[in-house]
């Protein structure tokens, strides 16, 4: 299975902003934030079609998201997950002694995970804290 190493960043997007204000448990927030944007070349390297799910693994965690090319193009080798719950599953908490985690510029490995489910925001965060009871 194809695996690629990318440099990941996470930043704001207007879709994320709108959805966040609507509520982080809404489908809008899920749609807006559970995606990874990368260059079309990199998607090709993964041997997947756009909109397929991938697993993103960093030094501090992993997360399943949907791979897209996105409107705000990344150059090959760079990828972006919009700021929020999914990105923060893999953002390293190291701060270079500044207080600020490594939100931008950390290595991730991306691999196809077409048959894996993307977890919801509550499932991810409550799950990480032992509070997730499953969908009711």
């Amino acid at each position: 299975m194809a695996k690629i190493n990318l440099n990941m960043i996470t930043q704001r997007a207007i879709e994320e902003g709108v959805a966040m204000e609507k509520g982080k448990t809404t489908p809008d927030y899920f749609e807006a934030c559970s995606i990874i944007e990368m260059n079309a070349e990199d998607i090709k390297k993964l041997g997947i079609n756009p909109n397929a799910n991938v697993r993103v693994i960093s030094e501090s965690g992993e997360v399943i998201v949907k791979a897209v090319v996105g409107r705000q193009t990344c150059y090959p080798g760079l990828c972006h997950i919009r700021q929020g719950v999914w990105a923060n599953q893999v953002v390293p908490p190291r701060t270079q002694s500044t207080g600020e985690p490594q939100y931008s510029g950390f290595p991730v490995t991306v691999e196809p995970a077409e048959y894996e489910r993307i977890k919801g925001a509550l499932e991810l965060v409550q799950g990480a804290c032992g509070l997730w009871k499953g969908d009711e």
Binding site: M20, G61, N88, V91, P92, P101, V125, A128
Partner: peptide
């Protein structure tokens, strides 16, 4: 704010 969503998840786990 929402530290649950915006802190890296290991930091959330520690605080919890």
């Amino acid at each position: 704010t929402d530290a649950g969503a915006h802190f890296p998840i290991p930091a959330v786990q520690h605080l919890k």
